[in-house]
Computed example of a mutant assay.
Amino acid sequence: MTYIVTEQCIACKYMDCVEVCPVDCFYEGENMLVIHPDECIDCGVCEPECPVEAIRPALTADDDEWVEFNGKYARIWPNITEIGEVPANAKEMQGVPDKLNLFSEKPGTGS
């Protein structure tokens, strides 16, 4: 099993999770983070750190799409190991439904 980052992260991109990850398996896009499913050790320390509850364990077949999504972008985005700059409108974007249409495939800075 792995943990996944879901669409609640889009346009919020809080990075508290990055600081606690013991294996540095987070990767940064322009407006979202993802977890590399092959690097995640299933420790779960990242899940409670996410203020928007965008991180969860991949437990069901319904989560397979998010596992694939996280894996795809983890292979092309830069690894991130420290908290970077949170988007200015992150608080406003919390709880906004259907944020997948706001998703950017562009990589982040990897800061």
Rank of each mutant, 00 (worst) to 15 (best):
I4C: 10
C46T: 11
D98E: 02
D24Q: 05
N89T: 10
V45C: 00
K91W: 14
T60R: 15
C46V: 08
D38K: 04
L102E: 00
L100W: 14
M93D: 03
M1C: 07
F69Q: 03
M15P: 01
M32T: 09
E7Y: 06
N101M: 07
S111A: 08
G95L: 01
E105S: 10
C21N: 08
L102W: 02
F26H: 11
D63H: 00
K91L: 14
V34N: 00
N101P: 09
E92A: 14
M32L: 05
R56H: 09
V86T: 08
N70Q: 11
N31R: 07
S111K: 06
V23D: 14
C50Q: 08
K13F: 00
V96G: 01
Q94T: 10
N70T: 11
A61P: 03
N70L: 08
Y14V: 07
T81W: 05
Q94L: 13
D62P: 13
N31M: 05
T6Y: 15
V45H: 11
I76S: 05
T60I: 07
I4E: 07
N31D: 11
I80Q: 09
Q94M: 15
V18G: 03
G108L: 00
H36W: 03
C46L: 03
D16Q: 12
C21M: 08
A90V: 12
K72Q: 15
E47A: 09
E82C: 02
V67R: 15
